Simulated assay, not measured.
Amino acid sequence: MLTRVLTLAVLVVSCTLTDACTCSLEHPQAHFCNSDFVIVGRVQKLFRGNDFYDAYKVKIRNVFKATPKATLALKSGRILTPSQESLCGITLQPRETYVITGRVMHLQAHVHLCGYINKWREVTPRQRKGFRLLYKQGCTCKVHMNRRSTKSPNTCVAGYDECYERHGVCLHDRSRRCRWTRAPALTRCLQKQHLNGTMT
């Protein structure tokens, strides 16, 4: 308990000094693979906490991924988040449905700004297919948003490209190399991007 309090104290001090939450850019597939749970849920109510955390009551509609501990933690329908944005806390709108990735700590479901939280109606069809099935198949691959190239056969590189973020899924091909899978939406996005680039 003392360790947890000290850790929170250090976190508060460090975040106060920087006065902002900073997160590295990650692909939705990486968020899926690195999370304890991935759900689609409708926000019902916010409970303001007296401590470092607020809690959202969420009606869970779909569970795309959940470890055994996450399954237990999600039974309450309560999701904790830091009470301040400087501590990477998130703000969710009541009666809105979100796709949410998170971690489990002390048998409680936690979410923060560095996870993947997006309104379900704004998630692309390819991302929805990824969350439902394809991202799980690609968890043996590594996806990097912040690189331009790689020699690793187990890595797909997006190079800060929104097309890959919105429409890309990285899977092993027949030669066991990780590659972006072909998809009409991804092809259209890249072609449009290239066309816009040549016109400017």
Rank of each mutant, 00 (worst) to 15 (best):
A9D: 12
D19N: 14
T187S: 12
E165A: 10
E162W: 03
V104Q: 01
C156T: 10
I100H: 04
C15Y: 07
V12N: 07
T22H: 10
C23L: 10
S149P: 02
H106I: 03
D36G: 03
K75R: 13
K142V: 08
C15G: 02
L195R: 14
D51N: 12
Y164I: 00
C141S: 04
L8N: 13
Q29C: 13
P82S: 04
K65Y: 10
H106K: 06
Y135R: 06
I79S: 02
V104Y: 01
K59A: 03
H27Q: 11
Q191L: 12
L72H: 09
T91M: 10
R177A: 15
P153Q: 11
V63I: 06
E96V: 01
R188W: 08
P125E: 00
L133K: 14
S14C: 10
R4P: 00
I90L: 11
K45C: 03
A66H: 03
T155W: 06
F37I: 02
H110I: 09
Q93E: 13
Y56S: 03
I90N: 04
M1P: 05
Q84C: 06
P82M: 04
G115N: 08
L74Y: 02
V40G: 01
K142I: 07
S14N: 09
Q127G: 06
Q108Y: 09
L8D: 12
T198C: 06
A30H: 14
G102N: 02
H172W: 05
S24F: 14
G197E: 01
L87S: 10
Q93G: 01
Q191D: 12
D36F: 05
L190Y: 05
L107W: 11
S86R: 14
A158W: 10
M145V: 13
C189L: 06
R61F: 07
S152A: 11
R182H: 08
H144S: 13
S152G: 06
E162H: 07
P153D: 14
F131H: 02
H144N: 12
T181L: 15
A55H: 06
S149I: 00
E122H: 13
C163D: 13
I39V: 04
N196C: 07
N50I: 08
G159A: 14
Y164Q: 05
V58C: 02
A20N: 10
V169G: 10
K75H: 07
H27G: 10
C23M: 09
R48K: 11
V123S: 01
L11N: 13
L134Q: 15
T91R: 15
M145E: 09
L190N: 01
H27M: 10
D36V: 03
I39E: 05
S149R: 13
D54Q: 09
L80I: 00
C23K: 06
A30F: 13
R4A: 13
R188A: 11
P28I: 07
R147L: 15
A158P: 00
R42S: 00
Q29Y: 15
V10D: 11
R126P: 03
D161V: 12
V12F: 09
Y98M: 02
V63A: 03
M1L: 09
Q193N: 09
E165V: 09
I117T: 12
V169S: 12
Q127A: 10
H194W: 11
D51P: 02
G130S: 05
L113E: 15
R126M: 08
G168V: 03
R128Q: 10
L134P: 07
K151D: 15
C178M: 09
